[in-house]
Simulated scan of single mutants.
Amino acid sequence: MSVNLLELSGVHTHIGAYHILHGVDLQVPRGQLTMLLGRNGAGKTTTLRTIMGLWQASQGSIRFDGQDITRLATPQIAGQGVAYVPETMGIFADLTVKENMLLAARRARRAGEIDDARLKWIFRLFPAVQKFWNHPAGKLSGGQKQMLAVSRAIVEPRQLLVIDEPSKGLAPAIINNMIDAFAELKASGVTLLLVEQNINFAKRLGDTVAVMDNGRVVHAGAMRELAQDEELQRSLLGLAL
């Protein structure tokens, strides 16, 4: 069994006439939380969307748990045990929280068939999901929608969670709740790949880090080492953490 659950090798992605990724090499160690950092426009979201098959890599390979998934369709990749939470969260606003969760629980036809122990675990991680169970999802606050988006992603067991900017626009108290939830997810054996702009979030949670610039990974290593090296931070990110 490889130490890396996910590996990108020389991945290029074109979107129309635009060449966005220029040979991305990225390793996501099994059972760890990997942070993907970089300035706006560096290619972070494109990398996540390419992993999920929403945009096809024009060159290079993507391997998940030893299998080449480069050419698989998005539903096939999800079927391998990968969940994706986009920056937009993808909430169905006109459906209730319960109905949003039920859509993600592919093995259940009604809410009563969702694994009870797993649902109780999710409610403990994100109490707002239980509190607003029968409310329209569109009426939730931004933080509550983010909790719902992550809850949908884990309503069934997953090997890998791929999440784009989970703390964006959230109040500090909700961010702390999210940090605690992700720490517990990692402790349960789930591997996580997060794009994040909140530096405190990255420092507290990250095991490993990859920094992107101009469609390439320009630095990879331990999050702790980057957090302690202000000169390296400025050279890679243009600021100190």
Score class of each variant (00 low, 15 high):
236 L>D: 03
6 L>W: 04
34 T>H: 12
120 K>L: 14
78 A>Q: 14
99 E>W: 08
237 L>P: 01
92 F>Y: 15
192 L>R: 05
94 D>K: 15
112 G>L: 09
185 L>S: 04
78 A>C: 14
6 L>N: 07
169 G>Y: 10
162 V>I: 13
115 D>G: 11
174 I>S: 02
62 I>C: 07
76 Q>G: 01
147 M>W: 09
152 R>H: 04
75 P>Y: 12
45 T>F: 06
112 G>N: 11
98 K>N: 10
96 T>W: 04
27 Q>P: 00
24 V>W: 02
188 S>Q: 13
159 Q>M: 12
52 M>L: 09
101 M>R: 05
12 H>N: 14
12 H>G: 08
147 M>F: 09
104 A>V: 09
216 R>P: 00
159 Q>H: 12
120 K>T: 08
128 A>P: 10
23 G>T: 08
232 L>A: 14
84 Y>K: 03
12 H>D: 15
76 Q>N: 08
54 L>G: 00
135 H>R: 15
68 D>L: 03
97 V>N: 10
149 A>S: 10
158 R>V: 13
6 L>F: 05
90 G>F: 10
71 R>I: 01
99 E>V: 03
135 H>C: 13
81 G>H: 07
115 D>I: 09
208 T>M: 12
124 R>A: 15
152 R>T: 03
115 D>V: 08
130 Q>E: 15
30 R>C: 06
6 L>P: 00
181 A>T: 01
197 Q>H: 03
194 L>Y: 00
15 I>C: 09
76 Q>Y: 02
234 R>N: 09
233 Q>C: 14
188 S>D: 09
186 K>W: 06
189 G>Q: 06
204 R>A: 11
208 T>W: 12
72 L>V: 01
73 A>K: 14
154 I>K: 12
59 Q>A: 15
170 L>D: 02
16 G>K: 09
147 M>C: 09
233 Q>T: 04
187 A>T: 02
109 R>S: 11
217 V>R: 05
206 G>T: 02
45 T>M: 07
109 R>Y: 03
30 R>M: 10
167 S>A: 14
16 G>P: 02
52 M>F: 03
92 F>N: 13
105 A>D: 06
69 I>S: 05
